[in-house]
Amino acid sequence: MPEDSLPQRIPEPELMVGDEQAAAYAGADFTTPHNRFINLFAERFPGFGGGAVLDLGCGPADITLRFARRYPAALLTGLDGAKAMLNHGVAAVARAGLASRIQLRHARLPLPDPTALPRFPTLIANSLLHHLHDPMVLWQTLLDHAEPGAAVCFMDLLRPSSREEAAALVSRYSGAEPEMLRHDFYHSLLAAFRIDEVCSQLVAAGIEGLGVEQVSDRHLLVWGVLG
């Protein structure tokens, strides 16, 4: 086996708590992957018209805002465990004039009291799974807060086959970004899961109705209607 192969993930810190790191992410240009997420949702749920949506790990709310603009009848609740990131999100929502349709809440998963949050007919998440040291936290949160038959669309990074491939992806997609973002992207790739690992997680959680597929050279998508 090559020395730089990645048969197992290498976890990274769960939360981005520093102000400098949060500001870097809030100011970065994620237009391409974030628009890709919105388009993937639209392709897989063409009948979606709006309603309550839970955005898990919303960060500075860039995808939350893009989703709200794409679907004017959607009412979004965004959760994130990092206050520094949420501060940027709250400011962005206010600037966009969407505070009446987007509520951001500081909460770290798993919620100590799941009953403090209702169940939702639609749940979305982007780049949350690879941050979690225990991936089952995400799937239990889904079971706790999804209505029966809920639409689910979670996109995340896909772990490459080697450190060399991870470095090449960083160079290809983040070569012009600040060093902090390049560093974080590299380590996030090492912390990400593979498709077979996510499938095993879903089986272990007893979750039915969701599929897992590769949607780019660095992303996987978990989506479907919860059984």
Rank of each mutant, 00 (worst) to 15 (best):
44 R>W: 11
72 P>K: 03
195 I>E: 08
105 R>S: 12
200 S>H: 05
125 A>D: 01
85 M>R: 03
94 A>W: 02
206 G>I: 03
194 R>D: 00
216 S>A: 15
102 I>H: 03
181 L>K: 01
21 Q>S: 14
1 M>S: 10
47 G>P: 07
52 A>K: 15
149 G>F: 15
121 P>V: 08
112 P>L: 06
19 D>N: 14
119 R>C: 12
203 V>H: 15
212 V>I: 05
218 R>M: 11
5 S>Q: 09
23 A>S: 15
168 A>P: 07
136 M>H: 07
70 R>S: 07
154 F>P: 04
83 K>Y: 12
133 H>G: 03
168 A>K: 11
156 D>V: 07
180 M>K: 10
208 E>N: 10
155 M>C: 10
91 A>F: 06
79 L>D: 01
85 M>T: 05
106 H>K: 15
37 F>I: 08
2 P>D: 06
152 V>Q: 11
193 F>L: 02
80 D>M: 15
188 S>F: 02
133 H>F: 01
220 L>F: 12
204 A>S: 00
135 P>T: 05
43 E>I: 08
87 N>I: 10
13 P>C: 02
47 G>A: 10
212 V>L: 07
117 L>R: 04
150 A>C: 13
167 A>Q: 10
98 L>V: 01
30 F>A: 06
191 A>Y: 00
227 G>V: 00
195 I>M: 12
95 R>K: 05
163 R>P: 03
96 A>L: 07
199 C>G: 04
55 D>S: 07
140 Q>E: 05
123 L>W: 01
24 A>R: 09
146 A>E: 13
158 L>G: 03
138 L>C: 01
222 V>I: 12
86 L>F: 11
102 I>C: 08
22 A>T: 08
144 D>T: 09
49 G>Q: 09
60 P>T: 09
2 P>W: 06
37 F>R: 04
89 G>L: 06
89 G>D: 12
126 N>Q: 11
131 H>P: 00
201 Q>C: 04
170 V>S: 13
33 P>T: 13
116 A>K: 11
36 R>Y: 12
185 F>K: 07
84 A>R: 11
183 H>N: 14
43 E>T: 13
192 A>P: 04
207 I>W: 03
166 A>C: 05
9 R>G: 02
14 E>N: 02
66 R>P: 02
124 I>L: 14
224 G>C: 04
115 T>V: 09
39 N>V: 07
